Each structure stands twice: as structure tokens, then as C-alpha cells.
Amino acid sequence: MRALLVVNPKATTTTERSRDVLVRALRSEVSLTVEYTRRRGHAATLARAAAEDGVDVVAILGGDGSVNEVVNGLLTSKPALAVRDAPTAHVLPAVAVVPGGSTNVFARALRLPKDWAEGTSVILDGLRDERYRVIGLGRADERYFTFTAGLGLDAAVVRRVEQARLRGRTSSPGLYLNAFLGQLLAGDRRNPPLAVETPDEVAETDLSMVVVQNTAPWTYIGDRAVDPNPGASFESGLDVFAVRRLTVPATTRTVTQLLTTGTANGPQILRLHDRAEFTVRSARPQAFQVDGDYLGEREKVHFLSVPDALRVIC
């Protein structure tokens, strides 16, 4: 069995020792090639080449951003494009994730251990037993995502966090909370620009934030799951959690509910469950994020559920 290990050397919770232990462990089971990412997008290039070279497994030591790049590399490889309108899981390498980021939402949604050493053990057992889970993905225009995408407030918060990290700040729940409060105070709460358009249904308009989930939970604040759509699943379509006008009382209530119970309810909330496709439009450019990475501003994004897209060792 041939495997590629993609390592993000800047992942926040990895060390040289953990990388060395993982490499030795994997080499005891497979013929292993190790590649270190050097720039944004490099993991996608490595994964695409691995799929086209017939590699059996692509392992990732990194956070959600590294996972997203690898997934997009696999799903845009020649084997995947050759069966674009059919399930791609069994024509692509299986994916193995060793959590190395600060949040690791995708790995935790798969119920993988948070500790890298325990995660390595799960992968080794999965390789020996050929134990895989087939999951669906989401697609936002041509970008695939594993657990979430969003436009509006949540994506603007991601943008603020990325800017803070570039200035040397460490990713933490406090950093995200400060970014949220700062964006809420700075944003235009009076004229919600977003609308969700679904086939054969009346559009939902006047939305300030649209979060799309491919699984549950949406994210984590420390050890607490934030789970506005607990019915979201890798085995079903996409779920939507949207917030209407961001008045101070309504926003305070929503945030309090999310922080204390993990979910939120009320007239300001819109939910859609198990949707195959829909479009989000905006009256003006809005921040856009995929799997926690800020991707600029958009005025229109088409979302599509992609069933049976990937095999994951877990």
C-alpha cells in the first residue's frame, strides 16, 4: 500500500517529535512519501498529483485548512473529473487526518481523537483493518468543503481572526469572541444584504449571515460544540443556519443561546435541512469563508451537496 503524508509544518499543535513519531508509525504499515507544504495551495497540488499517481492513502498532519486543500486537490484530480457526475469515493485515495490545528472541526466531527498520538493509533488500526467511512462533501461554486461554508458575519469574523494571526496573535476562543464583537459593532446591522434561493421555493431575504453545514457541529469554542443544526450529517444534504436583522437584543439572545446551549432559536433564525442545492445572493459584496479559511468577498455563491465523495479512515 502506498501513502502520502502531507505535513503542514506551521500547524499550531504539531512538533518535530510528533511528526517523526507519525512518520515512523506509518512507515511500519505502508510505503510512505512525506511532503511538507511550503505555501498556500501546496497541499492541494500534492494531493492532486498523488491521486493521479495511484496512491492509496493521503494522510494529513495539519488543521482544517490543510484538510480542505487536500480534499480540493483530490476532487479536482483526473480520476475524480473522469466520474464527475458519479460518486468519487472509490476512485480516489482514502484520506487519513491527524489533527494538528487549533480547532480541528473536521476530525472532531468524525469522532477522531484530539491527541495526535491517539489519532495516529486510529489511523494505523484503520489501515490494518481497511476500515473506512464514506462521506459526502459540500461544494461552494467550484470549492469543496468538508464541514462548513458561510457568507456575512461569520466569514467577516474569520477574516478578522486571520488578520490578527498575521500580526502574531495565537488562535484561541478569546480571539474569535473579540473578533465577533468587533465585527458586530463595525458592521451594517440595518440593511441585511443576503438572500437564500432554493429551487421551487420563495427566496428567504433580509439575512445578515448564512452558515452552510455539511455536518454537525458547526464549530467549537474550546471544548464546547456550537451546533445550530444538530441534524446535519456527512450522509445527508446541506443544512443552513441563517440570522436575520442583527438588532442588539436579537443578536444578544442568539449569541447567548449559542454559547450556553450550543444552538439558537427564535424568529430571527432561519433553518433549512438536507438540501441538495441552493444559491446565496447578496446586494453587496460579503465576506466568504470555507472550512474556516477566508476566501474574499462574493455577491453570489451556488451551493451543492456532493454525496459519497470521499473515503475517510476513522
Rank of each mutant, 00 (worst) to 15 (best):
I313N: 00
L32P: 08
F106I: 08
A283R: 14
A283C: 09
A94T: 00
T205R: 14
D56Q: 12
R160K: 13
D85N: 12
L270R: 13
Y132T: 13
L194Y: 03
L194C: 04
V290M: 06
A149M: 04
L207I: 05
G174F: 08
R131H: 10
L184A: 15
G41T: 01
E130A: 14
R245C: 04
S77E: 09
N214F: 01
D206Q: 11
T205D: 13
G119Y: 01
V226E: 07
E201V: 02
Q213Y: 06
E204Q: 15
R128H: 07
P307G: 04
R24A: 14
A117R: 15
V7H: 06
R253N: 12
D56V: 02
D129M: 12
E162D: 12
E35A: 14
P192I: 02
R139G: 04
V210Y: 08
A47T: 02
D154V: 06
K10H: 15
V98D: 05
P173Y: 04
L177D: 10
A155E: 08
N8H: 03
T88C: 10
E29D: 09
S282Q: 08
R190I: 07
V210L: 06
V23P: 05
V243A: 09
T146K: 02
I60C: 03
D227G: 02
T15E: 08
D200I: 02
L124G: 00
E118L: 13
A155V: 06
Y176W: 12
E35P: 03
D239G: 06
R128K: 11
G62C: 04
V122Q: 05
A283M: 09
N178H: 14
R48D: 07
V91R: 08
E52N: 11
N178W: 14
V161S: 03
R131K: 11
R108Y: 09
R48W: 01
R253M: 09
A80S: 11
R165K: 15
P285I: 00
R143D: 10
T247F: 06
I313S: 00
A86C: 08
T12Y: 04
